[in-house]
Simulated assay, not measured.
Amino acid sequence: MDAQAFQKLIARLTEEIAGIPLGAALEAHLNAEHGPGSPIYEAIFDACVTGTSEGWMCNREGGGIRYGRVLKASDATHGFSVDVVDMQDIAGPHHSHPNGEIDLIMPLTSEAVFDDRPAGWCVYEAGSAHSPTVSRGRAFVLYLLPQGAIHFSAAA
């Protein structure tokens, strides 16, 4: 797996979901069709492990979080950007999602959760906000952002 193969993998998924409103119905669909154990989930998880170990994914670090924008929003990804973070028992910077956010939670330790959610998909609607938090262990989280839109809150 390399960045180009990863883009093709992600494009298979984003083609399927492009234009679908971000909300509970999309989350249910993603978990039913592409949840833990499914071919897409496992391929993305394997790509994150490989990409991180090879240094083309999660190649930055700040505040105890490894992260990186793997793919910019483009026609190839149907307007979604892709970020991946590697977090362990930490809260990330507060931010909002002008167009929503689709998260794939991939625990690296069995009990790890992201925003109190176990392995699988979590969809935040447009205008939502949070301080992304991994607790009870370590996890990769992949973020799909429509048009790459994210707004980080000012530090207090």
Rank of each mutant, 00 (worst) to 15 (best):
A25D: 15
A24T: 14
Q88C: 10
A91F: 09
V82N: 01
M1C: 04
I44M: 11
G148D: 08
A154S: 15
Q4F: 11
N99R: 14
S110Q: 14
S53A: 15
R117C: 10
E61A: 12
K72N: 13
V113R: 15
R69C: 07
T77H: 07
I17Q: 04
V85Q: 07
E54R: 15
V85T: 15
G55E: 08
G92S: 09
G63Q: 10
T52G: 10
T52I: 03
G51H: 04
F6A: 04
M106P: 02
E27G: 02
H95S: 12
A32K: 14
D83I: 09
D75N: 07
D86L: 14
L30H: 13
A43G: 01
V82F: 00
Y41L: 02
C122I: 04
C48D: 07
A139F: 00
E33I: 10
R60C: 12
P36T: 14
D46F: 05
G55M: 12
L26D: 09
A126I: 01
T52N: 15
E16T: 11
L71I: 09
E111F: 03
H95P: 08
L145C: 09
L144C: 11
G127D: 08
P146S: 02
G62C: 09
T77R: 07
A32D: 11
Q7C: 07
A3D: 10
Q7W: 06
A43R: 09
S128M: 05
A76T: 12
V113T: 15
T14Q: 01
